[in-house]
Design a protein around this nucleic acid. Sequence first.
RNA 1: CGGGGCGUAGCUCAGCCUGGUAGAGCGCCACGUUUGGGACGUGGAUGCCGGAGGUUCGAAUCCUCUCGCCCCGACCA
Length: 512
Amino acid sequence: MAKNIKTRAEDYSQWYLDVIKASQMADYAPVRGCMVIRPEGFAIWEAMQRDLDRRFKETGHTNAYFPLLIPMSFMAKEAQHVDGFAMECAVVTHHKLQQDGKGGLQAAGELEEPYIIRPTSETVIGHMYAQWIESYRDLPVLINQWANVMRWEMRTRLFLRTAEFLWQEGHTAHETAEEAEEETLRMLDVYAEFVEEFMAMPVVKGPKSDSEKFPGAVTTYAIESLMQDGKALQNGTSHNLGQNFARAFDIKFTGRDQKEQHCWTTSWGVSTRLIGSLIMMHSDDEGLVLPPRVAPNLVAIIPIFKTDEERAKVSAYIDRVVGALCGEAEVEAGKKRLSSGDITRYFFDKHTGQCVLVDWRDNRPGDKQFHWEQRGVPFRIEVGPRDVDGEAMVVKKRLDRSKDVVKLENISAAWLRGMSESVQAEMFAKAKAFRDANTHHVGSYDEMKKILADKPGFVRAFFHPDREAEAKIKEETKATVRCIPFDARDKQGKCIYSGKDGAPEVLFALSY
RNA sequence: CGGGGCGUAGCUCAGCCUGGUAGAGCGCCACGUUUGGGACGUGGAUGCCGGAGGUUCGAAUCCUCUCGCCCCGACCA
């Protein structure tokens, strides 16, 4: 058992922090609420970016970049948007520093109009779109930006909620309401497919209730997942902004009918929060567990030897294993590459950057097993003198900690890809089975209260979304409406709260 | 922003009550014995005791003020 990680049963939130620490994904920064994403964690974000970016491009979007600082007056233009974000905006009021005469520095050069650090970019982007869009021929505008944003949160947790975080925000403008709605749903689907296929996390799709939607949106759609502690986590959102921002920023075009009219806009985003979600969804008491598609290192090879002769023998044999997996050319290339700590990395896939590594550090094999296990490396291959003699190796799977002896002749890139895909599928199936086992359909409010108090999970019930009722339910149970699932669109029943008929089925849960 | 807690070695913390000039475990470095799931021995390096004032011959320790972080609540991707 891992001695540096608390078990989930002992203390779930400490377990989460321990897993991050043990896997070296992130560190606290010397800045309130901020984190440093270390290479192990950032590689995961890069993998996610690569896959998502491809999906955005495939649906016709292009990338651009807008400024970090936003004139304060922009924020004031959309009433609900201000309400939603004003409380958590960092404000830049000065533009230089000077000596304070006591050996320190002080802010100087007060700005006439303060800037805010973007909590999201609808406003600056709206301002620019107003200038770029003149005619229906300019539409649709389909732009995405990869950026950092800042929301001055009261309470922060690594990845799940930090003051600064990385995300992507798509911003589109359309000619008609229908097109905007289509786009909003298209991107929700892109997110759902990405999260399910790439991150192996099952999601529930659907619109948010009025009280949970994005400030300034007409409709917000979300993908929700269930974490191992029974709490829900919103993995991404897609907003139909209607003409709210178009009116606020005067984004107008001349239509096919020669009349000037406002655009219909959307915005959608996912953030580094997904990494937190990934950790909580798949990891176990031994540490991080990564789906193969996300893992920066697919295989860790652990050599075992006693004498120098054995070392030479094992080393030559490992070259054959690496050659079989990564190709002969990579065997020499990998050795020449600069590396730290006696760990040699060989590219398995130059496109994704995924590696096979060989751990030559001067530790005992047991240390190395734990080391790579805690970092979630999907497969470990143990190679010792016995394996060399038998032209075989011991292959260990991180997901179920199983081990198998595999013959060298069966090792190939295709073998690793096949094994990766089956683990990927297994992880998704496992997560889905967990979610289904922890989803409860209830017929009454009392039943819901009991389940939420005993063993939290997803609770599905007929309910008429309503600001007041939701506030009351939150007060009494701490649960909120996560979404109104699409998968239950054709169902209707009696509201568990008001008793009125014709209520849709909604998804309740405690949430992050 | 309210309530609580904590700042001493890279990490976890002891020492503080009762002032006398810095400790343990883990980690790190070197050497040796080891090596198929967390080894052991020997030696070694590491501190503005969060910061600023004060009391005192003398402050990690007592007093005042500050700053920061963590946890619990109200708000949030």
